[in-house]
Design a binder for these strands. Sequence first.
DNA 1: GTGGTCTAGACCACG
DNA 2: GTGGTCTAGACCACT
Lengths: 125, 125, 125, 125
Amino acid sequence: MLVIQLDSGSGVPAYRQIIDQILGALAAGTLRSGDQVPTVRQLAQALKVNPNTVVRAYKELAIREILGTQQGTGTFVTQKKIKPNDTERQRRLRQFVTEIAARAGVEGFTIKELRERLKELQVER
Amino acid sequence: MLVIQLDSGSGVPAYRQIIDQILGALAAGTLRSGDQVPTVRQLAQALKVNPNTVVRAYKELAIREILGTQQGTGTFVTQKKIKPNDTERQRRLRQFVTEIAARAGVEGFTIKELRERLKELQVER
Amino acid sequence: MLVIQLDSGSGVPAYRQIIDQILGALAAGTLRSGDQVPTVRQLAQALKVNPNTVVRAYKELAIREILGTQQGTGTFVTQKKIKPNDTERQRRLRQFVTEIAARAGVEGFTIKELRERLKELQVER
Amino acid sequence: MLVIQLDSGSGVPAYRQIIDQILGALAAGTLRSGDQVPTVRQLAQALKVNPNTVVRAYKELAIREILGTQQGTGTFVTQKKIKPNDTERQRRLRQFVTEIAARAGVEGFTIKELRERLKELQVER
DNA sequence: GTGGTCTAGACCACG
DNA sequence: GTGGTCTAGACCACT
């Protein structure tokens, strides 16, 4: 079950929080190819946000071809094209993790904390 | 030496990112009471941002009595003891992790992979 | 000089017409890397359209990384990354032209007409 | 044989595309007075669209007396002579060319290249 | 009921 | 002045 929570005091725009959490759910495996995401009106009501704000988030993901919309039916996660170009992928992953660790260090977070928080995402949330 | 990096794609206002990272550096001990922070012009140039943006960030920190300006000398961290303000730190950590997860999702990495890689870094230290 | 004209009776959404005509101007060479496009308010006024409609068009092009926005300054054509993978490019071009010709035939347009219209775009419009 | 293709990414309503392409086929001579058009169900299935959408398109053409329904037999092009309606044709042509130019822009082809390729096709015929 | 487009008007961040 | 976000509410296309 997909759960999205907004942090209104964070300075991050609501529509961007929605985008980030959907992308996060994809990485966490909570959301998979073909799954339906909440309807615009459902999510808008749940988050106490204007429907247009949700529309904007979904639209951006649709442009990036991560979500696909079917008028009158709903919005779905597209079938993702996995390119298992392994060496290249591993290289990018390594670089990504290194960057994360560096930023965490600057901001005063420990690797341990990061791993714990990521684990929470992974389980369900 | 204080390192500040802006993430222009995150949707978080630049001045807010500056504030957050200075608070982070204080919490991490990178920055201590009495230390001088970069001059407005220095930081503006380094971040490729309008000086007014830096001014705004410093001003807000001055209002909170975290920074103090000494005319003609520069801007310094006040002697005041800063209590960690755990709520704020938790908020930043949550936001950081969410952003990581989102980027992982769009790049096609899983949370599981991230945690494994981070664990390797953890061990090495 | 970039000229955009809306055809309100065509059934094509205004924001999409803006997108298409900007992309067309890129192909025509009217618009080049680094050029500034009209400001949101200017274009909205010229087209007699709500500013948000222009914002939506520019935003979609920004997501596709065709336009880039600089708050307080304006909106610009990004530096495009040309990948001159020639054989592949030629193959796609050939396929594209074939598809155009087929559709034109079905709809009752002649190749001659197409070329004439495209020439108009090319000159300036 | 009548060929209709929908472009779901164009922003033009499906029912409108059906109407336009039938009118185009009439102008091109692909479809003539007295010809039968596909049944609602056939076309709906072929275009992967809800039957109601096809019904709506046929209905609008029936109102314009371009199509006529014969209960239990099917839908046919009326005997009525259709005057080309040049304005409409010009509108569709303009729209078609704009769309081509837009796609060329996003694919990185120039108008010049398109015209050259189209010229080759023109000669061969 | 679903999503898509548009308007009008507000307030914010940035130069 | 620039663009960015959000709300409220309208109407359309489609299942």
